[in-house]
């Protein structure tokens, strides 16, 4: 079966510094794939390359069957992106934000109302986004990502800074989307969230993939005691520098 995402030896350097260092992995269609790593590990750089915003220095990747360098324009309608920043037009209403993108994707305005209902924003759809809480903005970002019914949804820290109950709503929504057949590429700081949601996770550290497997297998492989969590594995695999730094202190 054709992979949703195929990444081979992908590398990105900034002024000689290697932000992403020859990573390779595949994501299956309909899978929720977790891409986890400490700050500056290369998560956002990887997402930016896979969504056509940034050119790789070397290596190749195909997303939805399209090459991320040569077929960027064809790739765009196949993917949805929920950014780690709340990049919305604040003076416009939620509906106006979505209708703007709906027009760019050549889809009907009624779809904007559908996704607003899907994320529970119908009642506040006509309010200016500047009046929204963080949680509402995050839901609107997800609505924008879903607007054109993409094959693959990239979620960059979708629950960061949100209340627990809103974060849970968003996790439920992500889970439902995957059940409906959408491929989800998720980065998050919350390892427990990845453990709950993802079929497989990759740990990235200093631009390289430190481990990639199902949460269960990773926990089994790096087991320290009966209560080993995915977070323990994450710290074990990606916290070497932190430990070295603290020992040096």
């Amino acid at each position: 079966m054709k992979k949703a995402i195929e990444v081979y030896n992908l590398t990105r350097k900034y002024d000689g510094l290697c932000a992403v260092d020859g990573i390779s992995f595949n994501v299956e269609p309909g899978e929720i794939f977790g891409f986890l790593g400490p700050n500056g590990a290369g998560k956002t750089t990887t997402i930016r390359m896979l969504t056509g915003q940034l050119l790789p220095t070397s290596g190749t990747a195909k997303v939805a069957g399209y090459d991320i360098v040569r077929e960027r324009q064809m790739l765009k309608p196949k993917i949805g992106v929920v950014f780690d920043s709340q990049n919305l037009y604040e003076r416009m209403s939620a509906r106006e934000n979505l209708i703007f993108y709906a027009r760019l994707y050549r889809i009907g305005k009624s779809r904007a109302d559908e996704v607003l209902a899907q994320v529970g924003l119908t009642e506040r759809a006509s309010d200016r986004v500047m009046k929204y809480s963080n949680g509402m903005k995050q839901r609107l970002l997800i609505a924008r990502g879903l607007l054109h019914q993409p094959q693959i949804l990239f979620l960059d820290e979708p629950t960061r800074g949100l209340d627990a109950h809103i974060a849970r709503d968003i996790r439920k929504l992500v889970s439902d989307l995957a059940i409906a057949g959408m491929t989800i590429f998720l980065t998050t700081h919350y390892i427990e969230e990845a453990d709950q949601l993802c079929q497989r996770v990759a740990f990235i550290d200093q631009g390289k993939i430190a481990a990639l497997d199902t949460p269960e297998r990773l926990k089994a492989e790096y087991r320290q005691d009966n209560g080993t969590t995915l977070e323990d594995v994450f710290i074990q695999l990606t916290g070497s520098d932190l430990r070295r730094d603290s020992e040096a202190l």
């Binding site: 056509g52 324009q73 309608p77 950014f83 920043s85 990049n87 037009y89 760019l104």
Partner: peptide, 14 residues
Amino acid sequence: QTKTIEALFTSPAT
């Protein structure tokens, strides 16, 4: 500044 340009870059607009 608001990074809305990033969303535009991933939209069908060139």
